[in-house]
Amino acid sequence: MKTARDMGLVTCTGCASVWPDGTDRCGRCGATLRSRHDNSLQLVWAFWATGLLFYIPANLYPMLVTSTIVGTQSSTIVGGAVEIAKHGEIGIAAIVLFASVVIPVAKFIAIAHLAISVRRGSIQSLHGRQHLYEVVEFVGRWSMIDVFVVAILSALVQLSVIASIQPGPAALTFALSVIFTMLSARSFDTRLIWDSLSTRNEDPA
């Protein structure tokens, strides 16, 4: 198994074509060519930290503010899911909890694990980590469910005094958190996972 780098070539991540090392732009798709995204890990961590920073207020502040004749009530992400469960809709409550809590937290852990293991040059479970990355890329978008629910309800539930729903500050910080973690995952260059293999092979120590 030879890599483009071993052969003095560079692979275009946009279109999979191969060019001599030192070529700036891909002649097929026009993407900028980089054998490895050198600052990949720095970008990953910068977006990761920003995402985490927004995730904290997203859980502390209300997501939805519901006003009815009996009064005003705000609910956080977890509080909202608990209310749904109390109505007996355990399945829907599970979807909300999974999308808004399990996925984001698991994503933070998974991206950190990928970045750290690459830094260490680990050769453990290369396929496992490649799959982990693909899962992280795939599930990230599903965390937006709760943001869409807030947007839908705020537009729909406007029945003057009977009931009205407004978005809370958490709707915005949560959306930003999801977007930054998606950017963090996309900044990760998976070729770094596989590089540790060729470095170990050349260096028998």
Partner: peptide, 20 residues
């Protein structure tokens, strides 16, 4: 490593950089 094949006949894996 002496004679390279023409790069235009190759395809590189965007995920792991393996060349075919």
């Amino acid at each position: 490593m002496t004679n390279h094949p023409d790069p235009s006949t190759l395809i590189g894996c965007p995920s792991c950089d393996a060349v075919y």
